[in-house]
Simulated assay, not measured.
Amino acid sequence: MNIHGIRHDLLLLLLEMGRDSHPNEFVGLLRERDGIMEELNLLPGTVGRGDSASLLYTMMPLDTHVAGSAHSHPNGVLRPSSADVNFFPRTGKYHLIIGYPYGKDNWRCFTADGEPYDLEVIA
C-alpha cells in the first residue's frame, strides 16, 4: 500500500478533533482508498489523557485498507515520541500527528519507523 494523499475534509476533521479533545490526546485509525486517506475509525475502548492516548488492539478491524493512525499532541510538538514509534508499526504504515494550536499547518505525517513522509492534501 502506497499512500500519497489525505482528503482535505478528513484533515479538517482531525484538526477539529484535536481542538475538541484538548488538553487530552485523541487517537484513531485511518482508512485509505486508492492511496488516499479518506476515513477515520474510532475504536471502542479508546482512552485519551493529557500525556497519551491508547486504543485496544483487539478492537482493530480486520481490514486491508487501514493505512495507519492519527493522534494529537496537545503540547504542539510535531515529532513522534519514543512511545509513538513503538505504537506506529502496530497500526499501519503511515501516521499523522496533529498538534496544538490545531491550525491548517499543525500536522505532520510519518512512516511506521518515525521518518517524516510528505502527504498531499486533496480536495
Rank of each mutant, 00 (worst) to 15 (best):
N2T: 14
N2C: 10
I3S: 08
I3E: 14
I6F: 00
I6K: 04
R7N: 15
H8W: 11
H8L: 09
D9I: 09
L12S: 12
L13V: 06
L14G: 09
L14N: 07
L14R: 09
L15T: 08
E16P: 06
E16W: 03
M17P: 03
M17V: 05
R19P: 01
R19D: 03
R19W: 12
D20S: 10
D20A: 13
D20I: 10
H22T: 12
P23D: 07
P23A: 02
N24E: 14
N24D: 15
F26Y: 06
L29P: 09
L30C: 09
R31Q: 09
R33V: 02
D34H: 11
D34P: 03
D34L: 14
D34R: 15
D34I: 07
G35D: 06
I36C: 06
M37P: 02
E38R: 11
E39P: 01
E39G: 04
L40T: 04
L42W: 08
L43R: 06
L43F: 02
P44D: 01
P44Y: 05
P44Q: 05
G45Y: 02
G45T: 04
T46S: 15
T46A: 13
V47M: 00
V47Y: 00
G48Q: 12
G50H: 14
D51P: 00
D51T: 07
S52G: 11
S54Y: 00
S54V: 00
S54Q: 00
L56M: 05
L56N: 13
Y57D: 08
M60K: 05
P61K: 09
P61A: 12
T64R: 15
H65V: 05
H65Q: 12
V66Y: 11
V66I: 15
V66K: 06
A67N: 07
A67W: 03
G68V: 01
S69Y: 11
S69T: 15
A70S: 07
A70T: 02
A70P: 10
A70E: 05
H71I: 10
H71K: 11
S72L: 02
H73R: 14
N75A: 11
N75D: 15
N75Q: 11
G76V: 11
G76H: 08
V77M: 06
S82H: 02
D84Q: 03
V85Q: 00
N86Q: 09
F87C: 00
T91K: 04
T91F: 08
K93V: 04
Y94A: 01
H95V: 00
H95R: 06
L96V: 04
L96W: 08
I97N: 01
G99W: 04
G99R: 13
Y100V: 02
Y100R: 10
P101T: 08
P101Y: 08
Y102H: 02
G103S: 12
D105Y: 07
N106K: 11
N106S: 12
R108M: 12
T111M: 09
E115Q: 15
Y117E: 10
L119N: 03
E120W: 04
E120T: 14
E120I: 03
V121W: 04
V121D: 03
A123T: 14
